[in-house]
Amino acid sequence: MKVDTFDEGLEHRNILPYDPAYSDVFAQVRRYVQENLESVELVHIGSTAIRGLRGKPMVDIAAITSREDLRAAQEEFERLGFHRRAVWVDKDEKPYVCGCIQHDGRRFNINIHICHRGDPVHKDSLAFMDILHRRPDLRRKYEEAKDHAHMIDPVNPEVYNREKEAVIKEIHAQIGLA
């Protein structure tokens, strides 16, 4: 598998219907990482992990590592071709790498959030996804928040995520993560 530079094109910033290829793309990345890195577990998170949920076509992944130094784990991913991007989510306590891969003749952006088991990236993402799987009303509410955020700023991911925050916090409160 070859990892290319994250595709900044606007077609990757639109909110689209769920695409069954997302789970295949995740499986392709997971195989590649498992073949090349020890002691890393990958979990498909975010909108593309929830069948039927509309979202931006970016496959988000939590990379759960046993390494104490998360930045060292980030460097391991960089050796595989993923790269750092100067974005607000890349912090010492939550390193981030990204890339773009080909799957069935199409390009898919990949976001990998590196964390320890049980930290908020891991635990909260799984709880949030679980409630959206089980509650169509909350899934619709989240989609509406995404649509609203996209109307405000379809280009800047920081603004997009900030605009969804109130609904995410409301859903977190319903599942005891507030």
Rank of each mutant, 00 (worst) to 15 (best):
V3F: 15
D4L: 14
T5V: 14
N14G: 07
N14Y: 05
I15N: 11
I15V: 15
L16N: 13
L16F: 12
Y18M: 14
Y18H: 15
D19W: 11
D19Q: 13
A21Q: 14
S23E: 07
D24G: 13
V25H: 06
V25G: 10
Y32E: 11
E38T: 00
E38Q: 00
E41Y: 00
E41H: 00
I45L: 06
I45W: 07
G46R: 01
G46S: 00
S47G: 04
L53N: 10
L53P: 11
L53S: 08
R54E: 01
R54K: 11
G55P: 04
D60T: 01
A62D: 06
A63W: 04
A63L: 11
I64D: 09
I64K: 01
T65H: 05
T65G: 08
T65F: 08
S66Q: 10
S66W: 15
Q74H: 06
E75S: 15
E75N: 15
E76K: 13
E76Q: 12
E78T: 09
E78P: 06
L80K: 14
L80A: 10
V87W: 12
K91N: 05
K91M: 14
K94E: 09
P95N: 12
V97T: 10
C98S: 12
G99K: 00
G99D: 05
C100Y: 08
I101F: 07
Q102S: 12
G105M: 04
G105P: 04
R107S: 14
I112G: 03
C115S: 07
H116P: 03
R117W: 15
R117L: 15
P120F: 09
P120D: 07
P120S: 07
P120E: 12
S125N: 13
A127R: 15
I131C: 02
L132K: 12
L132C: 05
D137T: 06
K141A: 15
E143V: 06
A145L: 00
K146E: 12
D147P: 01
I152D: 03
D153L: 04
P154C: 04
E158D: 05
E163H: 05
E163G: 02
E165G: 00
V167N: 13
E170D: 13
I171E: 02
H172D: 02
H172M: 07
G176K: 01
